[in-house]
Amino acid sequence: MISLLASLLGLLAHHTAAHGGAVNYTVDDIWYPGYDTYGPTSQATAPWLPQRPWISNNPIFETTNTSLSCNVPGTSIPAQSYIPILPGQSISAVYYSWVHTVGPMIVWLTPCGTSCSTLDPSTALWFKIAERGLLSGDILEGMWFQRDFVKWDGSPSLWTEKLPEGLKAGKYLVRHEIVSLHSANRPQFYAECANLEVGGTGDRVPGEEYLVGIPGVWSMDQPEINIDVYDPVVGNQTTYKIPGPPVWI
């Protein structure tokens, strides 16, 4: 694999205009490439690509959109490679030029069975392995993890989370999702998915209470999603509960 530093520096200039998205991944300082939205379309079926293609930097607005699971057209085009990882290890998703600051960030997993190539993520059952929300202050001006995530100097933002200890070995999709709430009553969803090959001898799996469909987990009936952060009654609040199931750890 290409060295982490060289890879990040090489991609930086290429992605500075991006609206936002996970452009590659790292596990133990080993770099794994993501789909290049400015690159050739042939990469979508390349044997080295672990990330499902996402051809648009634009957000998804509809909570019922089937592309909500793995972006456009990641629901229908699988990746061919897998990122090897063990339970308890951390994976970092690398972003460039992320500019939004309000809203939760969540990492999801779903098992693929024998192959992620045959999995339709819009009909799969997902579980949370991490979620990050409001860290301090109020909803409008406070310190969200998403605000802290932004790197205004142009350096890459790394979102690092750990896989659950004892996770059952097998093939999984990992889904990094950012929900931006800066537009009143018009949430923006950004998500990318990549293939994982989880090793080890673990046998733990989440119970049914942790499992949800995507789409299905979000609804405009949820006040945390259908939200106007500029309304003082809302914006001055100092707590924000991320909707959906609890995190499975």
Rank of each mutant, 00 (worst) to 15 (best):
Q51N: 09
Q51H: 08
R52T: 13
W54P: 03
W54N: 14
W54Q: 14
S56Q: 13
S56T: 15
N57K: 10
N58G: 10
N58F: 10
P59R: 03
E62R: 06
E62C: 05
T63Q: 06
T63G: 02
T64M: 01
T64V: 02
T64C: 00
T64K: 02
N65V: 01
N65F: 01
N65T: 04
S67N: 14
S67A: 05
S67H: 07
S69M: 02
S69K: 01
S69V: 04
S69A: 15
S69L: 03
S69T: 03
S69D: 01
S69C: 10
C70P: 03
C70W: 00
C70Q: 07
C70L: 07
N71L: 01
N71V: 02
P73T: 10
G74M: 03
T75L: 11
T75A: 09
S76R: 11
I77V: 15
A79V: 07
A79H: 04
A79R: 01
A79M: 08
Q80D: 13
Q80M: 15
S81A: 15
Y82Q: 11
Y82M: 12
I83T: 09
I83D: 08
I83L: 04
P84Q: 04
P84W: 03
I85P: 00
I85L: 06
L86W: 00
L86R: 04
P87I: 06
P87H: 03
G88L: 04
G88Y: 03
G88N: 03
G88M: 02
Q89K: 10
Q89S: 10
Q89A: 08
I91C: 08
I91T: 07
I91A: 06
I91N: 05
I91V: 14
I91R: 01
S92T: 02
A93W: 05
A93C: 07
A93M: 09
A93K: 05
V94K: 03
V94A: 12
Y95E: 07
Y95K: 02
S97F: 11
W98V: 10
W98E: 13
V99L: 11
H100F: 15
H100M: 14
H100V: 10
H100T: 12
H100A: 12
H100P: 00
T101S: 15
T101M: 15
T101N: 12
V102W: 01
G103F: 14
P104M: 09
P104Q: 07
P104A: 04
M105G: 04
M105C: 09
M105N: 08
M105A: 10
I106T: 06
I106A: 01
W108G: 00
W108Y: 14
L109H: 04
T110M: 05
T110G: 05
T110W: 06
T110C: 06
P111N: 11
P111V: 05
P111A: 11
C112K: 10
G113W: 00
T114Y: 08
T114I: 01
S115K: 07
S115W: 08
S115P: 03
C116W: 06
C116D: 12
S117A: 15
S117W: 09
S117G: 13
S117D: 12
S117C: 09
T118A: 13
T118V: 07
L119R: 09
D120L: 12
D120E: 08
D120I: 05
P121N: 12
P121A: 15
S122F: 00
S122M: 01
S122V: 02
S122L: 02
S122R: 01
A124P: 13
L125A: 12
L125F: 07
L125E: 11
W126R: 06
W126E: 03
